[in-house]
Design a protein around this nucleic acid. Structure first.
Ligand code: SF4
Ligand code: SF4
Lengths: 130, 130
DNA sequence: ACATTATAGAGTCTTATAGTCTTTGATTAA
DNA sequence: TTAATCAAAGACTATAAGACTCTATAATGT
């Protein structure tokens, strides 16, 4: 069980966008160079972030990607969910009702991690990264 | 990113062993029936648990598996680590030193989950499951 | 000896991840 | 209005991981 590389790329890209804070959008070409990843692949990842409303894109010359308003409060969890999906890490298939302790423990522990990931915002990341 | 089915089997098997608490070992055949999984596959999972010292096995007629002494304090995390391995969920490959905030956040959040999984023991599970 | 049961390894099947290539569509600058 | 520039979408391929299966071997009790 590992985070996908796509999640890694997404986190770094969001940090890059947040740091550069230029008014003009940044092209996928540039973003890709900073992480040794192919532009076409990164663009698929960026499209997911756009669909979640964290990033806005503009086509055409001088186009590219930029963070949307309110980016400061985007959390790690938001980014991770955008890429990995929102479903639980533990799924047994069956459902033996509310007395199932296994599920309870697994889900609660996962929730602890998510709480922390929700607490950490892009703004906080930028703050400590520069 | 999901837990593997093997982890699921391992957790259920450990619970089954803990609940049945018979003095005689239980064969993989029996353990497999309780979860609709093939005996040969479950045996591979059990072998991992044996190697971690949580379960002891005896070959031959009337053989099978049983929990080792001190099973009460085995945690969810112990079981999960035995199957999934102990490496971190987030690995970026590179290492940009201690000022890397991305890694810091990811690892700390993971640690929160593990704390909780460490707190939950087999004994506690049995207690609330019967 | 013989039946029973765990262990080990190779081998298969399926699914998910990671990535490429190509086409289309939007936008801007000339 | 045309050409260049960029994102979006989809089909496609490749690699790796997960989820098994099969067979052979070793240990143990009767
Ligand atoms: S006991 Fe709980 S974890 Fe196990 S199969 Fe039933 S619902 Fe799922
Ligand atoms: S910045 Fe941190 S997470 Fe990113 S590659 Fe460097 S060490 Fe890894």
């Amino acid at each position: 069980m590992k985070y996908s590389k796509a999640t890694n790329y997404a986190l770094h890209t969001m940090l890059n966008l947040a740091m550069s804070n230029s008014s003009k959008p940044i092209g996928v070409q540039t973003l890709a160079e900073q992480q040794n990843v192919s532009p076409t692949y990164l663009s698929k990842i960026l499209t997911k972030l756009v669909k979640e409303g964290m990033v806005s894109s503009v086509s055409g010359a001088n186009g590219g990607y930029s963070l949307t308003k309110g980016w400061e409060s985007i959390s790690f969890l938001d980014i991770i969910f955008a890429i990995e999906g929102k479903s639980s890490l533990f799924e047994c298939g069956l459902d033996h009702g509310p007395h199932c302790q296994i599920q309870k423990v697994m889900l609660e522990s996962e929730e602890k991690m998510e709480e922390e990931l929700r607490r950490q915002t892009l703004a906080g990341l930028v703050q400590t990264s520069k």
